[in-house]
Each structure stands twice: as C-alpha cells, then as structure tokens.
Design a protein around this nucleic acid. Sequence first.
DNA 1: GTTGTCAACTTGACAGCGTCAACTCAGATG
DNA 2: CATCTGAGTTGACGCTGTCAAGTTGACAAC
Lengths: 242, 242
Amino acid sequence: MPDTRRSRARARPGDGALLRGEILSAATALLDEAGDESALTLRAVAARAGVTTPSVYLHFANKRELVDAVCLAVWEDLGRRMRDAGAGVEDPYQAMRRHGAAFVRFGLEHPVQYRLLMMRPRSGEEAEWSAADACLAYVGEAIRPCLEAGVLVGDPTRLALQMLAALHGLVALYLARPDYPWPDDVETMADEVTRMAGLGSALAGRLRGPGPAPTAGAFTAAFDALADRLRPDPAAGPDGRG
Amino acid sequence: MPDTRRSRARARPGDGALLRGEILSAATALLDEAGDESALTLRAVAARAGVTTPSVYLHFANKRELVDAVCLAVWEDLGRRMRDAGAGVEDPYQAMRRHGAAFVRFGLEHPVQYRLLMMRPRSGEEAEWSAADACLAYVGEAIRPCLEAGVLVGDPTRLALQMLAALHGLVALYLARPDYPWPDDVETMADEVTRMAGLGSALAGRLRGPGPAPTAGAFTAAFDALADRLRPDPAAGPDGRG
DNA sequence: GTTGTCAACTTGACAGCGTCAACTCAGATG
DNA sequence: CATCTGAGTTGACGCTGTCAAGTTGACAAC
C-alpha cells in the first residue's frame, strides 16, 4: 500500500506553494498532539497532508528544515510576549523581572519546540539561527534599561549571556528533568531565578576587579544590612519583593 | 556482507560478561572520537567490538541502556571533581564558587555525555536517574555550608534547583549554541555565573516576604554602598572578587 | 479542440537504523 | 563419546530519511 489514499487535489500551476503551508500545519498538529518529536516523521506529515512522502522535499530541503520551520512559527510570539510583559513597568529592574518570567513561561508553554530549537546541537548550516539569536537579543533588550539606569554594570553581551543562562537553565532543566523536586509554582520559581540572576549580576558587576575576596562572614553581615536598607517599610505592597 | 569479519574469539562459558566491557569501551571510543551521538549506532559498536549487532542485546536491553551506561561511566568523576575543587577552602561561599566552576568545567569537558544525560527527555523508566540526581545532590552539598553559615537563607532544595539551573544553563547553552558571542574565557564565565547565582540567591532570600518592591534607584544606591562595604581595602589579592 | 509544455506530484527504490526469533557452535560436564 | 548449555550468529522485519525517474493534469497556443 502506498502512503495513503490520495486525498488532496493537485494544486494548479503557480499555486505549488500552497502545499508548503499544508505540510507545515500538518507537522505542527502532529507535534502538538503527540507532544513528542519522534511522532514527527516525514511519512506521517505527508500522509496527514494527503500527499506522498517525497512531496515534502518540494518545499523543504530536508527534515531538519521542516522541523525548524515548525518550531520557528511558534517563536514569533516570544518577542511580543516579552515586550508585553514589561510594558507599563517603568522601573527597569522590575521590568526585567517580568521579561525573564515571560521568557520562562514561553519556554514551558512550548516544550517540544523549545527543546528542538534550543537543546539540539547546532546544524552547522545557518538555519534556525534566528531563534536562539532572538532569545539573546530579547534578553539584551531587557537588561539595557538596567544598564542605563545604573542598576547593572558590566559588559552588556556578557550580562545578557549570564542572564539567559539562568533563564534557559531553568527551562531546560524543567523540560529534561520533570522528576526533579520542583515546587508546584514553577511560575514563582521563574521569577525567583530572574531575580537571582538580576541581583547577582548587579552585585557581581560592582565587585569586579582586584582585591581580596570577602569572607562569608563579611557577606552575611553586609547582606543583612543591605536587606534592611532595601526593606525600610514593612507595610505590604501589591508586588513581590526584591 | 555481514557486519564485519569475525575478529573476536568467543568467550568461554562463564565469561560471557567480558563482552559487556568490550562493547562499553567500543561505544565510548566511538562517542569520543566522533564527538557526535549519531556515530553511536549498534552496528558500529558491534563491529568495533568484533561481534555481530544482535550480540549487544545479550548485555544491554536496548540502545538506550547502552548509551546510558556509556555516559554514566564518565559521571563517576563528577562528585570527586566537585569535592576536590572545594577542598581546603574553608570559607563556604568561596568553596561554593569553586564547586560551581568545577561543575561547569566538567560539563564542558564531556559535551556529548552531558548532552545525552542532561538534555534528553526523560526515559520514563528509572534509568540514568542517578546522573541527574547526582548533579542536584552535589549542588545541594555545595550550598549547605553556606546555609549553615547564614550566607544563604531559604529552602535548601529550592536554592539548589536555582543554583543548578544557572550552572546547567551555562553548560547547556554553550553546548547547544557555540555560535553565541561567548567570551574566550568560558572558565571565567563559569565562575561569574556561579557568583551571580550565589550573590543573587543570598540577597533574594533576604528580600522575600511582603512589602513594596524597591525601585531601581534604591537598588543602585544600596548596591553601591554594599560594594563599598565589601571592598574596604583596594589592595590586590590573589583571588578574584566577589 | 487538439497539442505541447511545464509545474506538481507519485512511483519505486536505496541504505541505514533498532530489534527480534530462530539457529549454530564451541567448550565444559557426565 | 554423548549431551547440555551459554555465547554468539543468521536472517529477517518494519521503520526511517532521501533520491532519481516517471507520471499526471492544468493552462497557453494554435
């Protein structure tokens, strides 16, 4: 038996690109339903699109390009989501917190696509470069106001990489290791990791340079003093701390 | 042509387990030489061990178990390496810095194994549980002295997860995205990320609870003051800051 | 309305993969 | 020498991505 009964009418000359869209949505549906990339075979995609397997090659050079296209489609949301998360928050540090949490939330909402785009060895070719690059760029955008306001100090690229490392680490770890003792509120944890990275970068940037390393005792005392200073008013506020 | 000319003498009854070791080292060599998991096929492993393909199934239930065994072999170093890195450093925070850097270094030195064990969706079975669990346990060990000394405050498990997220994020990002604008000294960056996570956790733990979120301006001033306090002596020391 | 052309798609195959049931074979044991 | 059994092989199955060559069908021209 061939792939399947023919179910799709041949496109008219000039409309060949129509199939591309149908293949893409078939692949997307397949990936979303199974939640597992192993379900995404060219044969399954083609059959779902009502077409034979090699027809996929008319619009995608190979499987990798198809997978990339499927995953990239979901990526178009990321920038908007991160910007929306920080919109209306004028304080640059608090805005960065929202940006980071939005990034983590996005990753957790698209586990398969995130894994395929961010946790695969690089293809060697230039494909899907834009996705991972977009992540770094968005994080860079999020921290720039903090740099301009003087909350963060240091090299912007380096800071963005460190910040992204923390965010990506949370997503990647959660996706690959759901058996870890994760708290129920991973949303909160996303904010905590962002805060951790933000506070840590802010402080580490100031401590750079030669000099003796402070002891843990000095840290403890200094941190307690800093916390007191940053918490002058014990009255409750609408937002979380830090 | 069958798999290859027969090159291995059949083991004597009772010595069947010998083949297991030969398969393991063949697979290890294959993985190390290619630096790419796609080179690790059962046929290649069997041929390298001088045996036919199905013989692998005499000692490993499936390919996944073989891959896990290969990767786990390298994991036995991790605990020792992390402990060694912190040995002799009595200051708990500085010891934690070393632990974190050692973890990152380990991951970067075993890219294929790290990726296979830490960046793959969970098998569903219990296999290789120990590897990822070991990571979390080692990080937990590293931060416990900090908790006891009062440098870190908060839930140990949560803190370990956050710390591991930062460390894993750096490794995972570097392995999956070598095309990022990484600095030449990733070693230094490993330390910076550890420091970032440590400082951030230390501070974030103190700022938890209800209350208004400090503004970026308050942060900036408070951080500058803290940095001054932690850097009382501008004389150069042997160690990095922070 | 017949014909020709070319894009759109199919046919049929290839090599390689993980996996398994059935078979052979050598070495130890009686 | 006969037999038993653990060690390894043979040959196959269904699956995968991929490709060269063939077919089909809508439109444009006569």
